[in-house]
Amino acid sequence: MSISKEEVLKVANLARLELSSEETESMTEQLATILGYVDKLGEVDCQDVEPTTHVLAINNAFRADEVKKSLSQEEALANAPLANGEAFVVPRII
């Protein structure tokens, strides 16, 4: 399956990535090569085969709902590029 430049730009937007025009060119070419290879999966008959998303037979891993020690506000904010001492700061949304 081939992929067009427009599709690459659309996917980049979904993934919140900006691509320069050079990057768009090279990514389109490389993605087409990789997806072309992946088309190999079409050779395999998967009728009635259940998909595997996890290899171990673990279902819901429940635990008791208990309050435990977690990060302090200060620790949680320590790596933030922009914070006001109480919260993460982002550009105005509304």
Binding site: L35, C46, T52
Partner: peptide, 29 residues
């Protein structure tokens, strides 16, 4: 970036069955 783009494409509407589901079935095999 390349892998984020491939992954986003494979999970995007219209391609999910052809890519992610198919790959997960092959994983079963």
């Amino acid at each position: 970036k390349r892998r984020i783009l491939i992954g986003t494409y494979a999970l995007s509407s219209g391609y999910y069955d052809a890519y992610y589901k198919k790959a997960s079935q092959v994983r079963t095999l």
